[in-house]
Design a binder for these strands. Structure first.
Lengths: 354, 354
DNA sequence: TCTTTCCCTCAAAGCGCTTTGAAAGCCTTT
DNA sequence: AAAGGCTTTCAAAGCGCTTTGAGGGAAAGA
């Protein structure tokens, strides 16, 4: 098939022993040379580095893990409810994780899991020593995973929080409550009085907090958010459409709708225009924007007013903290980190129709 | 803090030695009991299983890897061009991978990499023994990664193919050429004569083949696809919008547009309606649909005619083949697998306007 | 010249598992 | 009662690396 264009034409994957024989050096010296220990002659180190280049030698990760206790990887559980599909939010987060991992020569290990087997999956990942640290996401109320994680010796960070539990665990979260409270206040100031919420799955912490935020803002004006004005669904275009259609169909039609994701908003907006209504005039909408490159709120036909916070940045930050915790296990554990989402006003919000 | 609700309250992660001391059995026997060897007394095996339950013991994966040579994981490179973001297509594929991995107790290891360092990244993953097998994607023309992969002893599968190379490597691909040829023929039969293509990145194999498919169909009617009628961009909503706007603006406006993804179509459709044109009447559009749950072609205001093929199924199939190759390295290596995309006619296509 | 010091290199142990080859125990069979 | 055949268990080696503690050689000091 022709020779490779590359210098390295080695079928065999070399190991340290072979390399040491090749160089006439002990395995110790080579290991030291590669790991930057000072007690190696500069000449020798150069020889070693050259040989590594030529042979394509890479330390076996499993062996290194066994010897050092460090795997150079962080773990995550990929939630796999059979009805739900690839989640762009998960992907965007992963992208941030990847950015940071790349910079530190970490990789990440993904363990798919059914929602009801997540604890098992974490245990598996951790006690099998596959990862040095891991992150927990898709938190529910009083989530039992947190207690479990704390009982395990491996560092972890929660993405999000868990209502009903003391916040004595490391986390990175967006202040969803505040974001939706402020968004609601903004709409109240525009004169809106009838609200609806197209929310994520009902059991997830972020969904609960978003609802709470709205309710708090409404309460200050003596208003309430009725159950039938709230829907909990998967974050897909189709769900957004369906829920908005339902809202538009209701007896006392809400004039202001909050939406847990731009993906949901996509369908919601479609329903609105199909009903012949004008977004920002007949009905106002604010969506939470996770800064998905795929779908920018400013590119909607009527640019969307949003509460914005970058999921990718969150991924990056979580990887950063995780990797730091692995590098220095004795470092003082910093705990919660609450990010503020920005309310960005665009054209999808306007005065309440009279 | 309260006691855990769970039976397992072990901070320490136990290992085989501790377990053997606990049970008064040798490590050998326990290992055999757990790995299903026949020469273990049924009673003894029960005792072992019970102890494993209670202690939460999991074999250390690194140690097992070292002893057996199998890591129980498959690897993938996550492309990280700084300008590009989380790719929903990558996520959807991953989801299929996950389904299959879960069934076989595999996990997958993701190594993020800049596009120009992918070969390095693969080498790293493979020669460090982090994975038992891996998959290659985002193939380019005459992609050098294939030769490299073949020179390495680790099983791999290519998702897609690489033009200009003999197809003597294992792959799973959709027949993009045929899909777009047939889609074009369908449009030709509707009377369309001026075509445009909103394509993926120009260097990717699938993008090249899709263009070829169109050109083939056009050639049979003595037509050609001009360079300026083709655009190559990232697969985002915003790109789709921009490109369609450009198309609508051109002197001799095309009446039929093919689109490499429903994500691109999303923006494209917006541009069309914003221009006051009616999809399926003033302009016809066919998009390739990777079966993203996020975005269903049948849910567009004007349901989209598509060429469809499930990315998730591809992921599942690739994991299946990879895992099989790991389980039995001597099995006859089956090579290419070419899937056919289905043309599904909906409302976004109609007779060419006269 | 002999000792001390420093620099460089090495042999060996150990990380936690699987697996080979041997041995112990218990029945059958002769 | 001894020999042979099962079944069940075990000790030890080895996977490829890092790391400890020690040793050899050269330069410096006595």
């Amino acid at each position: 098939m022709g020779d490779s264009a590359h210098g390295t034409e080695n079928l065999r994957v070399v190991n340290l022993k072979q390399l040491s024989e090749l160089l006439g050096l002990s395995q110790t010296t080579i290991s030291r040379a590669l790991n930057g220990y000072p007690e190696v002659n500069a000449q020798t180190r150069l020889r070693v580095l050259k040989a590594v280049q030529e042979t394509g030698y890479r330390p076996n990760r499993a062996a290194r893990r066994l010897a050092t206790g460090k795997a150079g990887s962080i773990g995550l559980i990929m939630p796999i409810a059979s009805e739900q599909s690839a989640d762009i939010h998960f992907a965007e987060f992963q992208r941030g994780l990847a950015d940071e991992c790349l910079a530190h020569e970490f990789h990440f290990v993904i363990m798919p899991s059914q929602p009801d087997e997540e604890e098992q999956a974490i245990r598996g990942l951790v006690s099998s020593g596959s990862v040095d640290a891991y992150y927990l996401a898709y938190m529910r109320e009083r989530d039992s995973r947190i207690a479990m994680a704390k009982s395990l010796p491996t560092p972890f960070i929660v993405h999000g929080r868990s209502l009903g539990l003391a916040e004595d665990y490391p986390y990175v979260d967006v202040d969803n409550e505040r974001a939706f409270r402020e968004a609601t206040e903004f709409l109240l100031d525009l004169g809106h009085r009838r609200f609806a919420l197209i929310n994520g799955p009902a059991d997830l912490d972020f969904a609960i907090r978003r609802r709470m935020g709205i309710e708090q803002a409404l309460a200050t004006r003596g208003l309430t958010l009725e159950d039938h004005a709230v829907s909990n669904t998967l974050m897909t275009d189709a769900s957004g459409y369906r829920q908005m259609a339902r809202i538009l169909d209701s007896d006392v039609r809400p004039t202001a709708v909050l939406c847990a994701s731009t993906v949901l908003a996509l369908g919601a907006v479609r329903a609105i225009s199909q009903a012949g209504k004008v977004l920002g005039r007949d009905i106002s909408l604010i969506a939470h924007d996770d800064d998905l490159m795929l779908l920018k709120p400013e590119n909607f036909i009527v640019p969307l007013t949003t509460t914005g916070s970058s999921l990718r940045d969150a991924g990056r930050r979580i990887a950063e903290r995780l990797i730091a915790a692995v590098a220095d296990p004795d470092a003082p554990a910093l705990l919660g980190e609450l990010w503020t989402a920005d309310l960005i006003v665009r054209a999808s919000t306007g005065p309440a129709p009279t």
